[in-house]
């Protein structure tokens, strides 16, 4: 007997749609609640508009005093900026170069598979372990001290896998026929890599770098034992320097008000969002050309 599937089809579709919608709404609700809470608590003292603001222009544009107890956070913001700029400048070329090697130059075989699984393992290591490793290697063995550069190098190690995996995926999804066309016109492999492959894979690679950058900006555990805690603007690579994430962590540790922690968190999130949207804009402008 032929089954009557039309009713089944209707009911099934309806249940399925309800479940799908529910998941999306749940996700939206959580994100919105989180952001709303953060914005309220970050902006207003005790999350109440009558108590006045946590953040004002003065807070953002004056230097920190008293180890963070009074004053603004300008120095901290600048330190954060130094930190992630250096991390991106160092990690991106190494990460993209590794991805190019793995996806274009390395012969298929055990070595490549070994390196790939190695990178996967690396991306799964908890950040506190990078922190401890950075403390032993950069702070200790290389004698760089608790400093900007120790923090930068530790974060570079931590985010490299993210950049490599994203770049590799972007590169391997470049149409093979473009590579053939380039080689067929008498280009060398390196010309093909720079002029065609990296160009075609650019948006995927940059998304990977932005993702990594977001992680680096919010990272604390990898920095506790490496970057130092001075609230002044770093004057050299070996200055101890405190970025925003560390400022939040240390503030809570030292028993400062939660209001301040939320205000700082809000600043951090806004910074991440601004950097994301700027890089996306840049990416779009580049694509139009």
């Amino acid at each position: 007997m032929k089954k009557d599937r039309s009713k089944l089809n209707r009911i099934e579709n309806r249940i399925f749609m309800v479940l799908l919608r529910f998941s999306v709404i749940l996700l939206l609700a959580i994100v919105i609640a989180l952001l709303l809470y953060l914005v309220l608590r970050g902006l207003f003292k005790g999350a109440n508009i009558k108590n006045g603001f946590n953040i004002n222009l003065e807070f953002l544009t004056t230097l920190t005093n008293n180890g963070g107890k009074t004053g603004g956070i300008l120095g901290i913001i600048i330190n954060t900026f130094f930190l992630i700029t250096l991390v991106v400048l160092i990690a991106s070329p190494i990460g993209v170069a590794s991805a190019v090697y793995l996806s274009i130059y390395a012969k298929e075989g055990r070595f490549r598979e070994f390196v790939k699984s190695f990178i996967e393992v690396l991306s799964g290591i908890p950040s506190i372990i990078f922190g401890l490793f950075g403390m032993l290697l950069f702070v200790g063995v290389f004698n760089l001290g608790y400093s900007l550069i120790s923090g930068v190098l530790t974060l570079v190690l931590m985010i490299l896998p993210t950049i490599i995996v994203a770049s590799e995926n972007a590169i391997t999804s470049v149409d093979k026929s473009l590579i053939e066309a380039s080689i067929g016109l008498g280009a060398t492999w390196s010309e093909t890599t720079f002029k065609v492959v990296l160009k075609a894979a650019r948006s995927g690679i940059i998304s990977g770098i932005i993702l990594a950058l977001g992680r680096a900006m919010g990272e604390t555990a990898a920095l506790i034992y490496t970057v130092g805690s001075k609230t002044e603007i770093a004057t050299s690579l070996t200055s101890s320097s405190r970025p925003l994430s560390m400022h939040i962590y240390l503030g809570i540790n030292e028993g400062q008000s939660l209001d301040k922690a939320f205000a700082l968190s809000l600043v951090l999130i806004v910074m991440v969002l601004i950097i994301n949207s700027i890089s996306k804009k840049l990416l779009k402008c580049g694509d139009k050309k």
Binding site: S177, L178, A181, S182, G184, L185, G186, T188, V196, A200
Partner: peptide
């Protein structure tokens, strides 16, 4: 091979213009 491919060009099955 670079000079060879300069002298002997190739057109492929799938049109493959570069993204430029």
């Amino acid at each position: 091979t670079l000079e060879l491919r300069h002298r002997v060009g190739m057109v492929f099955q799938k049109a493959n213009p570069f993204p430029m």
